[in-house]
Nucleic acid binder design. Structure first.
Length: 154
DNA sequence: GCCAACGTTGGC
DNA sequence: GCCAACGTTGGC
């Protein structure tokens, strides 16, 4: 099993929003970065655990736990002319963008703010904390996951 | 709102 | 295939 961190702007779609969705599940559409797409298309497996991260907000950080709940499949918004995610170069025969479904998994006792991640010795090597990182989907090691879950459970 | 980092685009 | 211009991300 693999662990991931997925960023979302809570003003657009928050961890609480995910919990309120039918079946507490949401297709992770709108990713338009090749590296992030490759993680979803090539490496994610149903049942993988996700750190649901809130970005571009007052207190950025990990908001809760989710899980991957589907195999990868084409992002339908790439074919939708009315969507802001429409991609004229994508076709149904050769889709360019793929996604997985994301389902609520577990609440943490409290959010784990980015500032706490930064001061945690055990997380120094975490990809999220490396300078210049902007990827919206990042792999997380098992060790990092354990540390962050503990931070959110104290 | 600023700005650094960095991905993408397109002319050559 | 290079690289300048431009756009986006995201913390602060």
């Amino acid at each position: 099993m693999n662990y991931w961190l997925m960023k979302s702007e809570p003003d657009v779609f928050s961890f609480e929003d995910l919990k309120k969705r039918p079946k507490q599940t949401e297709p992770w559409n709108g990713v338009r970065n090749y590296q992030a797409r490759n993680f979803m298309r090539d490496s994610m497996k149903e049942g993988d655990i996700i750190l649901f991260y809130h970005s571009s907000c007052e207190i950025p950080g990990v908001a809760g736990l989710a899980k991957v709940s589907s195999a990868p499949y084409p992002d339908s918004t790439q074919f939708d002319k009315k969507s802001e995610y429409f991609d004229p170069k994508a076709t149904k025969e050769v889709p360019r963008w793929f996604l997985v479904d994301v389902t609520f998994h577990q609440d943490l006792k409290h959010h784990v703010p980015l500032s706490d991640l930064k001061t945690c010795k055990d997380l120094e090597a975490m990809r999220l904390l490396q300078p210049g990182n902007r990827l919206s989907i990042l792999p997380v090691t098992h060790e990092e996951f354990i540390v962050i879950k503990k931070l959110g459970s104290n």
